[in-house]
Design a protein around this nucleic acid. Sequence first.
DNA 1: TAAATTTTTTAGTCTAATCTAAATTTGATA
DNA 2: TATCAAATTTAGATTAGACTAAAAAATTTA
Lengths: 217, 217
Amino acid sequence: MQSLSTEDYLKAIYHASQSDRGTVATTSIANKIGAKPSSVTDMFKKLSEQKLVKYEKYQGVSLTNEGVKTALRIVRKHRLWESFLVSHLNFNWDEVHQVAEQLEHIQSEKLTNELERFLDYPTHDPHGDPIPNRALFMKSYNKILLTELPLNKEGVCIGVKDNSPDFLRYLDRRQIGIGTPILVLHRENFDQSLHIQAGNSTLMITQKTAENIYIKP
Amino acid sequence: MQSLSTEDYLKAIYHASQSDRGTVATTSIANKIGAKPSSVTDMFKKLSEQKLVKYEKYQGVSLTNEGVKTALRIVRKHRLWESFLVSHLNFNWDEVHQVAEQLEHIQSEKLTNELERFLDYPTHDPHGDPIPNRALFMKSYNKILLTELPLNKEGVCIGVKDNSPDFLRYLDRRQIGIGTPILVLHRENFDQSLHIQAGNSTLMITQKTAENIYIKP
DNA sequence: TAAATTTTTTAGTCTAATCTAAATTTGATA
DNA sequence: TATCAAATTTAGATTAGACTAAAAAATTTA
Ligand SMILES: [Mn+2]
Ligand SMILES: [Mn+2]
Ligand SMILES: [Mn+2]
Ligand SMILES: [Mn+2]
């Protein structure tokens, strides 16, 4: 049984190794967790003793199989709770993360599995991220960034890379959400900004926005 | 904002002062919490500094108004979650306490209030205990112990005093639950055991059982 | 490749929450 | 009311998780 803190570290390492592929650096976790690098080093040692990560001084960490499983159990709970908050408790997708950050630590297999059943076995959370099933398996669609969608080829928004409330509320105001059909009408060469059709409306978005939106082509 | 531990102490003090009326002794909390008396003394001092309890050396503690409010906010969450687990997640009433013990610490007013709305503003939890509303007000029925129910006077089970899984499962086997109509057919003078009619079946229960069942006369 | 910079670790400190053992106070008993 | 037992507090130690400051290693730059 892990402490709340070690669970957050494992999850952070898991997410970091998804994007970085391979070993994860001390500072990258320090930034994610909001702790000092020296604290992260301490935790790396602790996790290493528990055989949840492989750690070599100055070389960063990587999750062991057991570490991945533990991380995925947290991710599963996090995303199931986010789904519940949106589907039944009137939360908006920009409000759920903070609360799920706490709920993900509740220890009860029965609770997790019954929640999953109650939600009718959802496969993706409100941000379009895949939810590991009971066996910790998840299938993600193959997806591209909106920056990669060819001109005049219809796509559908299926997720976001940046989960910050600021970005999510910005998308709300632009009426872009999961499921919104999107068409790139024009790509401005000068600054890579895009004119797109999102649902019924035509609008302009910056490159930075486009590279945080996932598209099913 | 309180730590998980201080919240559990406040709740324990609240419950103890409900039954004991007045100040609460160090050992009584030590037993409830499962800690040593010396640890409890330390916590009493901390809570006293935060003005959540009134504490005088060797004289025990009593909650301040602010302490009562804080305790009731925890109790509210505990009982709402218990209700949710039973009504939507297929938990039995003997399984919910342990999980609610964790869920009660989740910090989100919106979550609590939306959960309450989702459950349609329940007034009592699965054990028959009253749920404080948003204003922390709760009205409890007036109730008596089954030991006090007069012979041949119809009553209804509306709660239990002992919430332990052992007792609750025992009641399940006897088909006694919240709402079960109960009639005392005979009281044995020798050992105060009772012959009762519970729902459709007639059965014998000990005094100890009877004094843990609340009845609406 | 040597120097400078950045990253990471070590050493030492702090706080919250716990404990044990010893001292103190209270309250009951003789 | 003096004595004793029980309850409570104090003193001192421990553990997890964090921090700062300084040292060491790795990496980048000149
Ligand atoms: Mn978390
Ligand atoms: Mn999410
Ligand atoms: Mn609790
Ligand atoms: Mn209850």
